[in-house]
Design a binder for these strands. Structure first.
Lengths: 201, 201
DNA sequence: TCCGGTTCTTAACAAATGTGAACGGATTTG
DNA sequence: CAAATCCGTTCACATTTGTTAAGAACCGGA
């Protein structure tokens, strides 16, 4: 595909972004960042395919270069999204990754997505080489944790309209990239109700 | 108080419970458990008082010997519970504890509560003495994480009645120990609605 | 013990959300 | 290209939940 070829040319820019993200967490040295990059593996996940299937054990954490992924669990045959990760984010199923238990939160691509992943084993090696990488893992855990806790409070506190407006306000870049029935499920309402809310403005 | 005196006599039984909980996580040796116990400090938290105030930095993790605690965040002046911890549980505000940031999830006692706490510094010492204690910390994180993720899906998926029935089914020991307006807030409904649901059976 | 506040319940009504069905546009499949 | 499927919208109607207000039950402090 032409599009993929063009994206591959963007690699320097994408590296820039990865490095920026890491600097935000802590002032990693160039050597440390090289250590990480030498262990990262490029992958391409086609829209609709999974980074992590339900019941699998998560063995990798990944940085998203381009694209969009959805974390979700399954209830009565319905996919309930609990989080979204997009370009510039790190993602992983933390519970499964750290405990080795089969995951009950799957991760699949909502768009063709380009990632760079690192295995748990390699991450362990980083920890040994430079304990600073523990900060990195902590950061990932905190981020997911914060997201979910916040969303929890929103679901408990706000009505459907307020939840949708808040979503629009805080994640405007997602509103047109996620199918509405997933947004509705994420917000805890039916697609028809979301449609009604959207109409009102 | 006579009650407190009696409880202090129960100490061997409470130790039993702490040890049982640890064995569930991993087969810690007697020496390792002694290491932990030597660092635990007894505390008593009166009903309504806080283990961790909003905005404080969490510096301790604690085991609950007797009593009941509520984790909550504040929205528009309303306390929104996101979790409960009771006797036999370990508790802590993981985000604040591991990052050193001020907490946005407070923890307060819903009953007079007896805990044994360990500081982050002492926990670090344990990690150095025996890396197995890292499993312990991971276990705590996973537990909280699992709870919140599950509750999230429930809030998004179930209606008020189903949420309450599920709560009754899964945490029957809590139903009569938590004020109903807190249960209502936890379930994302108004106290009057909860009252109506309870009346229907 | 009594008082004052808090919590819980109840009710009638208003508002929000769910349900089922139909339609049309977009996308995929053959 | 045609047929089939999926997705978003709309509507009418059912059901659930919120709101407001009042009183009863309960609890803690003086």
């Amino acid at each position: 595909m032409i599009k993929n070829y063009i994206e591959s040319l963007l690699s320097p820019i994408m590296n820039e972004r990865l490095i920026q993200q890491l600097q935000k967490i802590d002032n990693f040295s160039d050597e440390e960042i090289d250590m990480l990059q030498s262990k990262l593996i490029d992958k391409f996940i086609r829209k609709g395919d999974h980074f992590l299937q339900l019941g699998q054990v998560s063995r990798h954490v990944a940085f998203i270069d381009t694209g969009l992924m959805m974390h979700y669990s399954l209830h009565d045959g319905v996919e309930i999204p609990c989080n979204f990760s997009l370009e510039g984010d790190w993602m992983g199923s933390l519970k499964s990754f750290t405990t080795g238990s089969p995951t009950d939160v799957a991760i699949k691509a909502l768009e063709d997505t380009r990632i760079r992943e690192i295995s748990g084993d390699h991450l362990q090696q980083l920890f040994l080489l430079s304990p600073r990488w523990l900060l990195f893992k902590n950061h990932l855990v905190q981020l997911v944790f914060f997201n979910i806790t916040q969303h929890n409070a929103d679901l408990a506190m706000l009505d459907a309209k307020a939840r949708y407006y808040k979503f629009m306000r805080e994640k405007p870049e997602l509103i047109n990239r996620i199918p509405q029935y997933y947004i509705a499920a994420y917000l805890g309402i039916k697609p028809q109700s979301l449609s009604r809310i959207r109409k009102e403005r």
